[in-house]
Amino acid sequence: MSTPFPDRPASDRLAPGKPAIPRWKWLLGAAVVAVPLLLGIGLTRDPSYIPSMIVGRAMPEFSLEALSGDAKVASEALLGKPLVINFWASWCVSCRQEHPLLVQLGDRADLFGEFGIVGINYRDSRQAALGFLDREGRFPYASGLDTRGRLGIDFGVYGMPETFFVDAAGIVQARQVGPLTQEAVERNLKLIGAGR
């Protein structure tokens, strides 16, 4: 049998060893699928989320003026058992959402003593903070004033509310960005050895 198109280059002819669809077309097709897929996955991620640097490290020390005007709220006095540190502010809308859960958590800490809990009133005024607690209900635990947000920088805080879970050795084990949920509380308390 003679070759059907003698004037065409040999590379254009179908040879038995050559696939019908050349490799570069497969590669191009794969890229056409992969690029939008990767971009799509990127869209589902929250661009404002900042991974915590403090998880796995020692909790920063602090000694803050108390919201109540009583003794200072100091990290020294809180160490020795698992600790929950909640950053909150009167101007923070989603803080209202987690408020009842925090009050409940404070009562539980009081009753069972399996962990300590402290609030950090972040970039707020005492007056506004007390007004907020009058409306929403008092925390059964002390809050320290971080009026300028300096301690917030030490903790790498970027949004309100944020909650840190510190184990008895003073190592931060978890951070929750945004309002707490019952499920998040239980999961993170277990991480610091205070779960049930």
Partner: peptide
């Protein structure tokens, strides 16, 4: 600042 907020 990097030790607090990371490369971000």
């Amino acid at each position: 600042f990097r030790s607090r907020y990371g490369d971000y």
